[in-house]
Design a protein around this nucleic acid. Structure first.
Lengths: 139, 139
DNA sequence: TATTGTTATACTCTATAACTATA
DNA sequence: TATAGTTATAGAGTATAACAATA
């Protein structure tokens, strides 16, 4: 018992993720992609565009555009790679760091409020699954 | 201890969902939206376009296009609403039912494989969180 | 030659605006 | 008037194609 069917779980997760992401996208904060790029740099330090593309799982061409947008918005800056003149290192601006910090404590978003309204047991189950979701995302 | 910060959880979930959804979208199966519509009808029975729009959380105009695509692909059919001549009831074709059934046992997708490779304990944590994710999506 | 990065362009998903038909 | 549904159009996000500069 307690038998879990990975294929069934996958098909259910697909539906749930779709719903959640549609709602997250409707919130007008940082887009999920922009947020993921900033979070990666925040966690892993300055990176090249192609490293970021691989980590975030978008094409280098898409990353180029994303980085243009983030730069235009003053959230990243680029400095020359010390040894490879083809490449740049992308790093966060002070504004971006402040913004990430603020987002972590922003209780007004739809998702934060919805989580607040879960029971303590449910919050714990969600929290326990975070690491698993991370691992799936990075797998 | 065990104290959980909903705002922090929300900000982490946002990043993870973005990654997962980007990868799910890259798999060339049913789109997340098309899949969600079919799953809703499968679970809740024939529905009107506006009901589906509200459940799936898209605008009625977007649902109209989604339904056109699903109809073109032979996955839904519409029949007249018995009492309201403005409306139609959307139902699954036999093809769609077969497809949903097959998807539930399809072990070849990236996500199903990734879940298979998790430890039993991780699979359990993910499974335990499914209901919570559902509740968030429906909240 | 291979790699890093870019611009140009197209496709998918979903939104807003404007409309028709029925209630 | 309000509701169910539609078509037309625009925007965001991401892909492929084609290319330049450097390794």
């Amino acid at each position: 018992m307690g038998q879990i069917d990975p294929a069934l779980l996958a098909s259910e997760l697909r539906v749930v993720f779709g719903q959640l992401v549609r709602r997250l996208r409707a919130e007008n904060s940082l887009s999920l992609t922009h947020g993921a790029v900033l979070a990666r740099i925040d966690r892993g330090g300055p990176s090249s565009a192609s490293e970021l593309a691989a980590l975030i799982r978008v094409r280098p061409q898409s990353m180029a555009q994303t980085l243009n947008e983030l730069e235009r918005d003053g959230l990243i800056k680029r400095r020359p790679h010390p040894t490879d003149r083809r490449s740049s290192l992308v790093e966060l601006t002070a504004d971006a760091q402040a913004r990430l910090q603020a987002d972590r404590h922003h209780r007004e978003s739809w998702l934060a409020r919805a989580i607040e309204e879960l029971s303590p047991a449910q919050q714990r189950r969600l929290n326990d699954a975070m690491g698993v979701l991370q691992e799936l995302a990075d797998s």
